[in-house]
């Protein structure tokens, strides 16, 4: 099993290397360390979000509300910043994570205590959270000129040669790596994805573990909300509209099985990087950005076909399996 997982990530690293090499044949400057660091920085938010989504997918659930959560949280912190420019930024980040956590906990509560299937819950909250973003903002935008220099500048500060945004991503990756491989919560997340029934007998509270998974993805979406708004310096209702599918795409490309139980931090990060490299390479090699959607679609399909070879049975009856998971 472990060998298989390793194998999959090596495959993905290989695919990314080939991709970079192909781009470099048309535009050698792309493969320089400086530029690759920029690509990493551009993909930071997607990597962070993919890690949060991974935790949920591992438990045979799905969180479709992450992008709406991001938009809502982003609007909240932008409005706080616009109203109280002196509000310390580290505290604002805590607020962002807290607001996201609450929204995630609502999802988790509905899944855990009421027993509604995750796809239905998050389909509902996907529209509710984005609607709520409109309600709190009145449809108005928060523009760059209303944001404080600290709010915008923090993630652009250079630290040991990398922007702070990249360090956010690196810290999140390390945190998730420790959580998934060194804590009992991480083991539980895998266990209930592989076999919920056996997990119950092993003493794992399946419902509560799922609740935690949704709390994690919510908190991550909240953090990403601050990062997104301060990066693109505009908070509006339309922020990250439809981005939930990019997040899931990154996970799928990263080899995280939608049927639960299979996936790794490395996979989620590499899946996000794969998409990030494509989107930053298209303008460089003179392909219209309109190609991006079709290319990521093809990449998702190829990834599923390749991944399915090792786990065919798991993929086939995914919706039935969700039943055991919802119980």
């Amino acid at each position: 099993m472990n060998a298989l997982l390793k194998n999959r990530e090596i495959w993905l690293v290989g695919a990314i290397a080939v991709l970079i090499a192909l781009i470099a044949t048309r535009f050698p400057g792309f493969a320089t360390p400086r530029n690759l660091a920029n690509v990493f920085n551009d993909t930071s938010i997607l990597m962070i979000l993919a890690l949060g989504q991974m935790v949920v997918i591992l438990t045979r659930s799905i969180d479709l509300s992450m992008a709406s959560n991001l938009a809502f949280t982003g609007m909240v912190v932008a409005m706080i910043n616009a109203a109280y420019p002196g509000f310390p930024i580290p505290l604002l980040i805590v607020v962002a994570i807290g607001v996201g956590l609450i929204l995630g906990a609502i999802n988790g509560f509905l899944v855990w205590k009421i027993g509604i299937p995750p796809i239905v819950v998050t389909l509902g909250t996907l529209t509710i959270y984005r609607g709520a973003t409109f309600v709190i903002s009145g449809g108005a935008w928060v523009n760059a000129d209303k944001m404080s220099p600290d709010f915008i500048g923090l993630q652009r500060m250079q630290l040991l040669g990398l922007p702070v945004l990249s360090w956010f991503a690196i810290a999140t990756i390390l945190l998730f790596f420790v959580m998934m491989t060194r804590t009992s919560l991480g083991r539980s997340l895998y266990a209930i994805g592989v076999n919920p029934t056996a997990s119950v007998y092993a003493g794992i509270d399946v419902g509560r573990t799922k609740f935690f998974a949704f709390c994690i993805s919510g908190a991550i979406a909240g953090l990403a909300g601050y990062l997104w708004i301060s990066r693109y310096v505009i908070a509006s209702v339309e922020v990250a509209n439809g981005y939930e599918l990019n997040i899931i795409a990154a996970c799928v490309i990263g080899g995280i099985s939608i049927a639960g139980g299979i996936g790794s931090v490395g996979g989620a990060v590499l899946g996000a990087l794969f998409l990030g490299i494509i989107s930053s390479a298209l303008p460089v090699v003179n392909i219209s950005p309109f190609w991006q959607m079709a290319i990521s679609g093809t990449a998702i399909l190829l990834a599923v076909v390749l991944n399915a070879r090792g786990e065919r049975k798991q993929g086939r009856i995914i919706l039935k399996k969700a039943e055991a998971a919802a119980a």
Partner: peptide
């Protein structure tokens, strides 16, 4: 999800 991106793409 894949064909959704592909078709609209």
């Amino acid at each position: 999800i894949g064909t959704m991106s592909l078709f609209r793409g």
